[in-house]
Design a protein around this nucleic acid. Structure first.
Lengths: 114, 114
DNA sequence: CAACTCTACAACCGATTGGTGGTTTAGACT
DNA sequence: AGTCTAAACCACCAATCGGTTGTAGAGTTG
């Protein structure tokens, strides 16, 4: 919450656009799964495609979105082109959302159990 | 980061879907602006429509998305139906994203200035 | 009851998006 | 040079989405 304290209000239009774009980059199951895999370390497009049981083209497309959003980056390693998470805040974001989901689920379980 | 520590890995498919849905609900400028206004307190659809210079139907549609994502809720107050943020974690999310944007902008400014 | 206010719903249109198949580029090796 | 592999680019299709218009429902006030 401290980070939100000194945010301008109302939000400037350009900031609104950037924020929405960043959230939209995370608003796709395939991209969440890609980031979930990249939590363990860098992977190539081919490795991701195999792990996610989809095509190389599909992974390339989705990881392109994540790269344009400056969430992941790539490097050259001989014949490989491994991708890695370069913006660690996305893990915080996912952690907050997952925590909220867990809290809701527990509240629902309590309501049903008690 | 502590919240992300005890997240299952790999993420279960259902969780992936829920996380993506929640992020997608935030991936629209108009919805970010609605939440930005609701930071100051509850507002009705009509008030939001006027403040955002759009139609009542448009606000109703977008706030329906936010409500189905359990981000906002409504109550009855006589003739009014004010909406309010019921999931305070979304403010944390926006704060993190805005902080990241600021950090990037400052880094870019330093790179150009120095 | 009737008129009014506020909100939700449905249909439509244009634009965007996810996924696929095919092709092309860029390196690494012989 | 030629070949192989990995990754990106391209065009396409079906589905979804944002915004608009028109309408219907729910509640209040006379």
């Amino acid at each position: 919450m401290a980070a939100a304290a000194n945010i301008p209000h109302p939000l400037p239009p350009l900031v609104v656009e950037i924020v929405a774009t960043r959230f939209r980059a995370l608003g796709e199951p395939m991209r969440i799964r890609i980031l979930d895999l990249l939590r363990d370390g860098e992977m190539t497009v081919g490795e991701l495609a195999e792990a996610l049981d989809t095509t190389q083209q599909n992974v390339s497309k989705h990881i392109g979105v994540l790269q344009r959003a400056a969430i992941v980056g790539r490097r050259r390693d001989g014949v490989r082109t491994p991708y890695a998470i370069i913006d660690p805040t996305v893990l915080d974001l996912c952690g907050i959302v997952c925590g909220g989901i867990r809290r809701e689920a527990e509240g629902l379980a309590d309501a049903l159990g008690g």
